[in-house]
Simulated assay, not measured.
Amino acid sequence: MSKVHTLYRQYRLDRRFILLSLTPILLLFLVFSVVPIVWGIMLGFYQYSALYQESPFIWLDNYKNLFQDEVFTQSFWNTVKFVGFAFPVNIVLTLLIALGINKVRSAIWRNTLRTMFFLPTIAPLSGSAIIWSTMYKNDGGLFNLTLERLGLDAVPWLSDPSMAMWSVVLMTLWADIGFNIVIFMAGLDSIPVQFYEAARLDGASRFVVFWKMTLPLLQRTTLFVTVMTLISYFQMFPQFQVMTNGEPQNSTNVLALNIYTNAFQYNSMGYASAMATVLLLIIMIITLVQIRLGRSKWEY
């Protein structure tokens, strides 16, 4: 009985330690994550503005107005366009770069290349956006000066509706790919070398090794990268505000920027909260689908 009592006492002590350790974290999560989300969802049912004392309950009117709002519809499709192009390019590009750096035999050069690609992610996104806006200038910008030196016409990078979104995408990829490269390289380093040695002994080609071995064993890393990148891209805001502010002709007005504009420029907090709730639902559904499709049951 004394042994059972000792084990039970140890179990209670361990449980108490876990509760004491997790309580501050859970409280912070509750106060700074759960409460704001619930409060934001509730505001979507009110005609709330910081300028008025009264906030009448209007039920679903904000959501009805959303689907009659041409600016919201355009910002939704702008977001889909941005994510639909930037997201797959990011994943493919970062995976290929990670594979290339991982093949470098010298540890010094491998670490140097990894650091070079990761450096842009350290800089604030708004600061990078200011620098790229300067390089995108029609007169005196680095890109147009280079084109003129090559005898080509200048390009209205941020003032042409057909070019503005792609210009922001290019800047975003430059600023963002370093993080995913580091994550993919960590995933590649975690794959046991014995698997590749066995594949070489069996005479497998490089493509077969990549397709049949590397990609499946990177499934968990890929799931993490795709989920985090997709969530991040749906919420992209600083570069759109700094570089274009949604212009020209609302061609770069994405959902996050539209939410900010309605909340802090038009003081329509309730309407902006309804937009934010729709964005939250979109991200939740896509994330759950990704997790469902990307589940893996293997171990090594």
Rank of each mutant, 00 (worst) to 15 (best):
N65K: 13
D69Q: 09
K81I: 13
D61H: 07
A154L: 13
M213Y: 15
V242P: 03
Q290D: 02
S251F: 10
L188H: 03
K137A: 14
W39M: 03
T73H: 13
E299P: 11
Y260P: 03
G187N: 04
V35P: 06
S33N: 08
N180E: 03
P120W: 06
A274F: 07
R200A: 06
S268A: 09
Q68M: 13
L142W: 15
R149F: 15
D61F: 10
Q53N: 07
P56K: 06
I108N: 01
M275F: 07
P248W: 10
R12D: 02
V227A: 10
V209Y: 06
R114Q: 13
T226I: 14
W132R: 07
I97V: 14
P124N: 06
L30M: 11
E299G: 14
A276R: 05
Q10Y: 15
F237T: 03
W132Q: 01
R206P: 04
D14T: 05
L43D: 01
N65E: 10
F85H: 02
T244N: 03
Q265I: 11
M228Y: 13
P36Q: 05
V34G: 01
T277L: 07
F184A: 04
T146N: 05
V83T: 09
Q194S: 09
S2W: 15
Y48Q: 00
Q74G: 14
R206S: 11
V31D: 02
I259S: 00
E54V: 14
E247R: 12
R295Q: 10
P156D: 07
F195G: 00
L279P: 00
Y196M: 04
T146P: 09
L26S: 07
S232F: 10
T244D: 02
N78F: 11
V242D: 01
V71A: 14
R110L: 08
M236V: 13
L22A: 08
M1S: 09
M269V: 06
L119C: 05
R295M: 10
G203H: 11
I286M: 08
Y260S: 00
I122V: 12
V169P: 12
L279G: 04
V31I: 11
M213V: 06
G40I: 01
V209Q: 10
V278S: 02
T214G: 11
S133R: 09
Q290C: 09
F184C: 03
R105S: 14
E247Q: 13
N262V: 01
L13I: 08
Q53W: 05
F264A: 00
D69P: 08
Y63H: 06
P36D: 01
I25F: 15
F72Y: 09
I130L: 12
F76Q: 00
F72M: 04
V4I: 12
A123E: 01
Q74R: 14
N253H: 11
G44A: 03
A276K: 04
G44C: 04
V227Y: 14
Y48R: 00
N267A: 06
R9F: 12
I183S: 01
I25G: 10
Y46T: 00
